[in-house]
Design a protein around this nucleic acid. Sequence first.
DNA 1: TTTGCCTCCTGCGGGC
DNA 2: TGCCCGCAGGAGGCAA
Length: 267
Amino acid sequence: MPELPEVETVKETLKHQISGLFITKVVVYYDKMMSQAVAQALSGQQILTMNRLGKYIIFNLTNLDLISHLRMEGRYFIKTDEPVLKHEHVVFHLSNGQTLRYHDTRKFGTFDLKTKDQTYTTPPLSKLGKEPFDLNPEDFYNRLKQSKKPIKTALLDQTIVSGIGNIYADEILFASHVQPLRRADKVTKKEATWMIERGKGILESAIEAGGTTIRTYVSSLGVTGRFQLTLMVHQRKDEQCYICGDQIQKVVVGGRSSFYCKTCQKR
DNA sequence: TTTGCCTCCTGCGGGC
DNA sequence: TGCCCGCAGGAGGCAA
Ligand SMILES: [Zn+2]
């Protein structure tokens, strides 16, 4: 599932591919994905630029903002007049004859259309906490102090810190030597600081990796922003820890699969 | 108030 | 080989 780095890559790619173009028509093939009213309102809007906040992509239009969330499987493809595929649910027709296709096998992605004054002052964006890049470790620590839920769940809570998903949450906890089930209010200031500082490094590396593979993905697999990065623990159940050799454990925390090394993450 | 469970949707893998 | 079942997963909604 795309997290902050992958979404950043998608946003940057789209920015270079479609900025300046006008949306001439929007066709919806799965009604629940986008209302007719929204589709019609998009006609005639120019795509001025693309922005991102947390895991949300923002199409900055003439006098509206379209907020797109990819959830687990959402992808964008830029095509011309090829047949519309089974999982292409929304097709944006553009002023240069190309089409932007929103592809989503699970149909979990969302679109929200906002007037400019409502974009950041109403949900979903108004509820977002800061990204790790902007979050002061001390503020993060103080916020964790107020929460009794497991730290893994807190890291996934977009109102506490935005942009982190299941994969990077596991990686950040490993890098900070903290077990996923530890209560958030039991995390020390040192550990909270590690989570922010090392979290930033992990996300930055992933963004950088995305930048290097961007062309391959645009041409072959669409604008997914996905790329292979070496993961220390996520999805590595029963494999050896790269640091100590111990077996990676899997636990379910808040309904989410979580992976950790019980030796490197003692508490 | 805060927390946690359920829901959406469909491809995939395991079991027989 | 093919069918059936259960699972995974962001975030919103709702119940406790
Ligand atoms: Zn280890």
